[in-house]
Amino acid sequence: MTTIRLERRIAAAPAAVYDLVTRPARWHEWHPSSIRADAQAMESLAAGARFEEDIRSSGFTRHLRWTVREAEPPQRWCAEAVMDDGSTVHLRYELMADGDGTRFVRTLDYRLALPLLRWLNDVLMWRRVRRESNRALDNLVARFP
């Protein structure tokens, strides 16, 4: 299992940030790895909602089938995904009021099922995924000037 936990301060109220980040069909607007998500994921998704997403990360294009596991506006949102090869992703957003803004914590846990991908991840891919994740959060911060 690989874990990437990143934190940023965003100059917007937690409710505004939550409303954007829990709409997976809009992830491509700020996350460089997200290609597209199902149109019904344009709404802020509640626990139990399902959607699919295509991503391109570390040079690989993947299809993810997501289930939202937890939705507590505007504090927390968690979802899990499975890929065709059995690889899994767990994504958690935590939002806390911070003065007139939000402290946003994004935790990405993933486990690659194929031995070759696990080896590539250990050697190289996790660094690229971390860079992509950092760029995503920088883009998110820029959306709330």
Rank of each mutant, 00 (worst) to 15 (best):
A37Y: 03
S34N: 08
A39Q: 12
S33L: 04
A39T: 08
S58I: 04
S58Y: 15
A37E: 08
D19T: 13
R26V: 02
P32K: 03
E43F: 03
G48N: 09
P32I: 06
R56L: 11
S58D: 07
R23N: 07
A39H: 13
W27H: 14
D54A: 10
S57P: 10
R26Y: 09
G48D: 05
P32G: 01
W30V: 05
R23K: 15
P32Y: 04
D19G: 04
R36T: 07
R23Y: 12
T22L: 11
D19Y: 05
D54Q: 12
E29W: 00
R50K: 15
R50N: 12
D38E: 11
R56Y: 10
A46M: 11
A46C: 05
W27N: 05
D38K: 07
H31S: 08
S58N: 09
S33Q: 13
S58K: 06
I35Q: 07
S44R: 14
E52A: 15
F51V: 02
L45H: 02
D54Y: 04
A41P: 03
G48V: 06
I35H: 00
L20N: 10
D38I: 05
S33C: 07
A25C: 09
A46L: 08
A25F: 03
D38F: 05
F51H: 13
A25I: 07
W30I: 05
E43N: 13
A49I: 04
